[in-house]
């Protein structure tokens, strides 16, 4: 650990700290959702350590609990996590010059908030020790907050009364992520088509309707952005 690493770590931590507080309600809700779905403490925290992605966890749980086929669970998680593929591609150059033993755990730790805040300086700063500190300090802090408050939610959920429709908190959590995404017009088209198709196709066997709906949503969003670009060119 050298001085440049520590300087980077301090900057990264300072920039992420205020935003990181926003992780707390998510983590609590995820903990409650894992428990409401019927997982015990070991299963809930096992999933939480293995997956470390609130959206993928909350969204695949109903499928897992309903006994949906594994490939459907895997494909749904993959669709939800495709944003990480884009994040990973965008921030990759920020890890230039770092050995594989640092890049692999960095991939595990990559979350939306740190990506959004840290990518720009990761790409522009030259010193790789500084860059690693700048990425890993806020990432580890986010990880620690997330794990502690999911555990709090898991342990606290047992104290909550039954019959309070707490599983709806998972729906609220997913909606809160969806709303800012849908402010973009073609994203809204993708969401509307995906949502409507999923409701209409709900009786397809093996919950296949979900995957078909996601594909239709992607196609619709892509088509909408193309159509809008064309329209702009004409006017």
């Amino acid at each position: 650990m050298n001085r440049r690493f520590l300087a980077g770590a301090r900057s990264g931590f300072r920039i992420f700290l205020p935003l990181s507080i926003g992780l707390i309600p998510w983590a609590l809700v995820t903990g409650v959702a894992l428990t409401s779905a019927g997982l015990n403490v070991v299963e809930a925290m096992g999933m939480n350590l293995m997956v470390y992605a609130g959206v993928a966890q909350i969204a695949t749980l109903p499928l897992i609990v309903a006994g949906a086929p594994l490939w459907l669970i895997g494909l749904t998680a993959l669709a939800l996590n495709l944003r990480f593929l884009i994040f990973s591609a965008a921030i990759a150059r920020g890890f230039r010059g770092m050995p594989l033993r640092l890049r692999i755990p960095s991939g595990y730790l990559l979350i939306d908030g740190v990506f959004a805040l840290c990518t720009e300086r990761m790409l522009t700063v030259h010193d790789r020790h500084w860059r690693f500190g700048y990425f890993v300090a806020p990432s580890l802090w986010g990880w620690l907050l997330w794990q502690s408050f999911v555990l709090t939610g898991v342990l606290g959920a047992g104290a909550l009364p039954q019959g309070w429709s707490l599983e709806f908190m998972a729906t609220i959590a997913l909606m809160v992520i969806l709303v800012p995404l849908s402010k973009n017009r073609s994203m809204l088209v993708a969401a509307l088509v995906g949502g409507v198709a999923s409701v209409l196709l709900r009786d397809m066997p093996l919950k296949l309707g979900v995957i078909v709906a996601i594909v239709l949503g992607i196609v619709a969003g892509f088509a909408a952005s193309r159509a809008m670009a064309e329209h702009k060119k004409e006017t």
Binding site: I86, S186, A190, G195, A213, I214, G217, I218, F222
Partner: peptide, 27 residues
């Protein structure tokens, strides 16, 4: 990745979230 693929993948999270949320709300 080719830019066209990255462009289409941008819509996956929104489509997937809506596909999972909607039946829970309307059915």
């Amino acid at each position: 990745l080719p830019p066209a693929v990255l462009g289409a993948l941008r819509y996956a999270p929104a489509a997937a979230l809506a596909a999972i949320v909607a039946p829970g709300v309307f059915v």
